[in-house]
Design a protein around this nucleic acid. Sequence first.
DNA 1: TATGAATGCAACCAGGAGGTTGCACATGTC
DNA 2: GACATGTGCAACCTCCTGGTTGCATTCATA
Lengths: 109, 109
Amino acid sequence: MSSARERAAAEVFFALGDGTRLAVLKRLGASGALSATSLSDGAKVTRQAIVKHLQVLEGAGLVAPQKRGREVLYALQPERFDTAREFLDSVSASWDRALDRLRNLVEEG
Amino acid sequence: MSSARERAAAEVFFALGDGTRLAVLKRLGASGALSATSLSDGAKVTRQAIVKHLQVLEGAGLVAPQKRGREVLYALQPERFDTAREFLDSVSASWDRALDRLRNLVEEG
DNA sequence: TATGAATGCAACCAGGAGGTTGCACATGTC
DNA sequence: GACATGTGCAACCTCCTGGTTGCATTCATA
C-alpha cells in the first residue's frame, strides 16, 4: 500500500541521497540561484554531470529553473523539504506509540 | 569541502531513498522490532532482498539488530532521523538568509 | 538427538546511476 | 555579422543497486 505521499517521499529522499547533489543544494542555499555552469566550476565533476543532477533535483521538485538571458538559473524550492520531514515525523510518531503500547503491556502483564 | 556531517546525511538520505526500505521503516515504526523473515512475508520481495535492505539501513544507523533466541530483531533508531532533519533545516535557513540579502540589495539599490 | 525454522553466505543477473566526451544550437556582445 | 559563452542532446562506459536462487549453518524444541 505504498501511497502517493510515500512514493513522493522516496523520490525526494533519493534525490537527497547523493553527495554531489547535497553539495549543489548547499551551494544554492548559500549563494541563491545559480546556473549549471556556475555550479560546475569549483565542483569535481563535469558540467554535464551537474546538469544531470539538477534534472534529478528538479524531478523531485527540490529545485526550479528560470531563464535569465541565455542562462538558466536553478533556485532552491525548500518547501519540498516538508515532504521529507513529514515522513520522518510520522514514522517517529508511530514508533513512539509502539513504545508506549509495549510499556503498557509490560505494566499490565 | 564535504564535511563528515554532510557525508553522514548523504548516507542517511540514500538509505531512505528506496520505496522498499521506506516500507520497512514504516512497518518497524508501526509494529515495533521485527525479524527479516517477518518483514519478508507480506512484502513483494524475497527475504534476502529484505536482508540486504536491512543491512543498508543498519549501515546508515537507522536500524539496530538485537538477537532474541535464534531470531534477529531489527529495531528502529529514530534518533538518526535528526541527521536528516539537521541538513534540511540548515539549508532552509541559509536559503532564507540568501533571500533576505537579496531583498536588502533591492531596497538599497 | 533429530528436525524444522531462522539466519548467513555466495554467486549470479539485469538495469540504472553517475560520469565522461564530443558536437550542435542558442544568444548576448563587440 | 563574428565571436565567445552558455545550454542541450546523444552515445558511451563502468560500477553499483536491487533482486534472485541455492545451499550451508545455527539453534530452540519435541
